[in-house]
Design a protein around this nucleic acid. Structure first.
Length: 474
DNA sequence: TCGACTGACACTTTTGAACAGG
DNA sequence: ACCTGTTCAAAAGTGTCAGTCG
């Protein structure tokens, strides 16, 4: 776990701390159990034209940073696969190929840049991050397509200012349980209930709440109506737990709002994974396997090849909750560590995360993808993002960088959608994709494994050749 | 016809200005 | 003059639902 990555220190850090120390950076997700509870059902995030916050929102704890060195924190959303989904009969089904990727944007944490001590003294919240489906958005919100699946990535960059970002080392972390399906209206009533139960702004919709009966009644009516439509669910006219679907995981919530604690211990959590709607469909596929070769994320291969192999370095998974990371001291007791382990930043194409799985759960590291180039994260996007950010910053201090994106520009091919991407699971060839094989869980066999990888921009040959994407902040 | 999407709505929490008191 | 705490209105965030659109 001691990373040792080699690579030229960013110029920006020349005077600063030893870049090698970055390897000890740890990122832990706060409220992992809440995330898990959503994840097990199939998290949905509403996206609206004016922008909608995420719930749960991303909140992390950082450790291992150099107190006096400055860092920039970024978050972006990457497609989980190359499909579009639809909610049909109480479950998500593949509805075709994903739409062309919308303008890529990265959310820059408002405090950036800030010294490591600042980031570590308390949890870092991305509460104000908003998601939108408006491709012409001028507010800097992260643009997503509805009915597609995404997962957030957290980037930590040691840089004194936005200008030096491109020369800095990027360390990226992802948490399997934070994946979600973007929707313009909730599809799964279980998710709706969970949101209502845990989101304070939705208190008015809680049945037991003092709030309006009128609303409550309406809610019930609505639920019933929906339930009918989906004949499969007979349960919840009120609060009965859903039948076959994730029953166990859902019940916990059903009756106790905010009672996340009810969630089982980590050990159980792993099992719970099996209840994931996505997982269920997939059957065992999700777990151990997903042949790398079949990784849906293969679609990213192209991009990765372009920029720099180094982009996808080693990933390391940590088992969810398996014993809190020692470093977790920084964070709240309930947090998942993305972890301590940092792997070599040396371009090691072989060690890509793979979704999966070829390794048994519990394994912390993911083996090399048989399939070749690293996959999963779109490299170009990363680099361009940083670049764009820098540029934006230059032109407009501090805030929203705009849109230089060329969403569907020529570079697109290099982008995430460059390939059909099927892969990980036996997805039916192109066109009519069969039942969706996956869910994030599939991608990440172990429950709360966090993926972590670092890369250096210096490995990028030509920044200018990649599409820029703006970043949003605050 | 149907599913995805939109905007108004009622409700809630959050925010911050204004004010009072020490 | 400064600090702290309280109050209150405005702003902003929620899910719902009827209507629109393709």
């Amino acid at each position: 776990m001691k990373p040792t990555f080699s690579g030229p220190p960013p110029s920006s850090m020349a005077a600063g701390p030893d870049p090698y120390l970055q390897s000890s950076i740890r990122l832990t997700l706060e409220d992992p159990q809440l995330w898990k509870s959503f994840h097990e059902i199939g998290t949905e995030m509403i996206i609206t034209k004016p922008g909608r916050r995420m719930f749960p929102h991303c909140k992390v704890n950082l450790a291992g940073l150099i107190p006096c060195a400055k860092y920039i924190l970024l978050v972006d959303m990457v497609p989980v696969d190359g499909f579009r989904y639809k909610w049909n009969k109480e479950k998500w089904e593949v509805a075709g190929k994903a739409e062309p990727q919308p303008p890529c944007r990265t959310y820059l944490h408002p405090d950036s840049p800030a010294p490591g001590s600042h980031w570590m003294k308390q949890s870092v919240s991305f509460l104000k991050l908003k998601l939108t489906n408006n491709t012409l958005d001028q507010h800097g919100h992260i643009i997503l397509h509805s009915m597609h699946r995404y997962h957030p990535r957290f980037h930590i960059v040691q840089a004194d200012d936005m200008f030096s970002v491109r020369w800095s080392v990027f360390q990226t972390f992802t948490f399997p349980e934070t994946s979600f399906t973007s929707v313009t209206a909730y599809q799964n009533i279980k998710i709706t209930k969970l949101k209502i139960d845990h989101n304070p702004f939705a208190k008015g919709f809680r049945e037991e709440g003092s709030a309006k009966k009128r609303r409550a009644n309406k809610n019930l009516a609505c639920l019933e109506k929906r339930a009918k439509v989906s004949n499969s669910l007979k349960m919840e006219s009120e609060e009965n737990s859903p039948p076959e679907f994730n029953r166990s995981s859902y019940e916990g919530y059903d009756r106790e709002e905010g009672d996340v604690p009810k969630m089982k211990k980590e050990g159980d959590a792993v099992k719970a994974e099996g209840y994931s709607p996505w997982a269920a469909e997939r059957g065992h596929a999700m777990r151990t396997d997903s042949p790398a070769g079949a990784d849906p994320r293969d679609m990213y291969n192209a991009e990765q090849l372009v920029p720099a192999p180094a982009a996808y370095q080693p990933y390391r998974f940590n088992e969810y909750g398996k014993s809190p990371s020692p470093s977790s001291s920084v964070g709240s007791s309930n947090s998942v560590s993305a972890r301590s382990s940092f792997e070599s930043r040396v371009p090691d194409v072989a060690t890509v995360p793979n979704q999966d799985s070829s390794k048994p759960r519990g394994t912390h590291e993911i083996g090399p993808s048989p399939v070749g180039p690293p996959q999963h994260l779109p490299a170009p996007q990363d680099f361009t993002g940083a670049l764009n950010m820098t540029m934006a910053q230059a032109g407009k201090p501090g805030v929203i960088g705009h849109h230089i994106y060329s969403p569907y520009g020529a570079e697109q091919p290099l982008g995430q959608w460059s390939g059909p991407g099927p892969a990980q699971y036996p997805l039916p060839p192109p066109p009519p994709p069969p039942p969706p094989p996956h869910h994030l869980t599939a991608d990440y066999p172990t429950h709360t494994q966090a993926v972590h990888h670092g890369y250096h921009h210096g490995n990028v040959p030509e920044w200018s050749q990649y599409p820029l994407f703006s970043y949003s902040c605050w």
